[in-house]
Design a protein around this nucleic acid. Sequence first.
DNA 1: GGCTATGTATGAGAAACATTCATGTATATA
DNA 2: TATATACATGAATGTTTCTCATACATAGCC
Lengths: 298, 298
Amino acid sequence: MIEKIHLSILREIDRRGSLTAAAGSLNLTQSALSHTMKKLERQCNINLWLKDGRNIRLTEAGAYLLEQANRLLPQFERIDDTLRQFANNEKGSLRVGMECHPCYQWLLKVVQPFLAQSPGVDIDVKQRFQFGGMAALFNVDIDLLITPDPIQKERIVFEPVFPYELVLVVSRHNNLNGLSHVTPAQLSDQVLLTYPVETARLDIFQQFLLPAQCMPARHKTLESTDIILQMVAANRGVAAMPKWLALDYAKTLPITVIRLGDSGIHKHIYVGYRKQEQQNKHIQTFITLAKNHAQHPD
Amino acid sequence: MIEKIHLSILREIDRRGSLTAAAGSLNLTQSALSHTMKKLERQCNINLWLKDGRNIRLTEAGAYLLEQANRLLPQFERIDDTLRQFANNEKGSLRVGMECHPCYQWLLKVVQPFLAQSPGVDIDVKQRFQFGGMAALFNVDIDLLITPDPIQKERIVFEPVFPYELVLVVSRHNNLNGLSHVTPAQLSDQVLLTYPVETARLDIFQQFLLPAQCMPARHKTLESTDIILQMVAANRGVAAMPKWLALDYAKTLPITVIRLGDSGIHKHIYVGYRKQEQQNKHIQTFITLAKNHAQHPD
DNA sequence: GGCTATGTATGAGAAACATTCATGTATATA
DNA sequence: TATATACATGAATGTTTCTCATACATAGCC
């Protein structure tokens, strides 16, 4: 059976003009090449070349094989090259799952330096999961899960990368505006705007309203952060958002932030990945950049 | 560096679903595959798969390599196949040189059964040579030389394959018509038609006219056998041709043949090839068919 | 024509490599 | 919890490949 070495030898003979010269290029002896090719010739019952004086001249079969060598060997070289890129982490892709709506804004700020630092690595972002982010991570549909609510689970590692405070965002014209903090009861006559997910996954309910057995006057859901904050700005409701995000919007919208409760609700964004891939450099790069960004937000 | 075996192993793992199963198909042990691939991984500093439970799951690099395997391995199989065809003489080509104009008709009758017998073998016929047929044979521009005038030369073998008599072809209305043989002097008042080659290469001159110090009344050259014999039929001249060829044309043209001299000029068509290629089955097949045809002309 | 330089072929032994065996570790399954 | 299954790994083995030494053939040169 034809092996790569046979193709290499033939190509080198063609390039250098003789077995002896080819042996030099290949860091082998003339004898080695001769033996190797003779063995192939015996196996295939074929002549690849005939001695022509003291040189060799390819037979038809030999010429055919040389053609194939010139076609196939560059493909092998290409593969070696690409593999080197993989090894140097110059190539790959990272499928990032998001389970936290406002994190999207934050993600964009991490993705940018990541892409700049790893030009060969693509990032896919997924936000919809058939069975939730954890399942997606487990089933290798994603490589990274960004979530504020890590679930302790074997073979999955979560790392906190970004601490943030969940705050209430209100319009400058809202009656709560100016307070240093709010109590759950103070939301009873407010319209609460949230993303359209189960209340079980909304911290404002789980950690603030429900423990105090309070409820907002109304609960409306909206798909996008932009729209929610536009509505807040128009004093059509209040919303719970990461403080850094709200402050960002506050630069352009007439909104302010208020602490939730005495000491505030403090959370982290976590990045989760399969324990198995602890060595994965893209993942580690991502996490490093994420933590970096947390310390030097722009 | 990536070798064929790595691609084979990856493909088999993909097909069979596990290292162990793949080892079975490849007639190796699970251990062998594991070692082989681990070595590659070390060399390239890359992971091709990760253990996922008790099975393995390809990494991105592994998946990439599998893709390449599915692309390249069939090409190797194709090469093995083609090489087998070369070995079985089901593939190849034979470049035939012709130094003898009338032989062309004869060649066609040998080529036909050859092509039928060796469907994978192509025949190229060359009739013009920069430095003559022998040089072409020597320089490997052709593999076979068909000539009535072999030249003894080292490393070239000539075999007679077809005996024939050179005869004079005349019109039924020619004054020589009906003679049992002609003398050189009898051509002195005839127009001689020949192919346009040096007289040194024309047997009618070399072996018949010149030894008797005779010349025809006129000497005209024409490119093709057909035209020469048409001219002869129209009694515009006479020509020297192989008897078998002339008789063939005599079926449809008003021409007859006359022996040249008392005992006639007897020649052979020879097939020459490089001694080196004595083992070449296409050449031997060709010669066998040629001799065969000589004994059973149709 | 003989001589030398150059190139390929080949047998025997040495070196390198791949393979197996035995065993370890991890995981799924009953 | 026990058992079966799958991959990993170290040591020993077996096979292949390589080198060395040498033979053989040819080209080029005096």
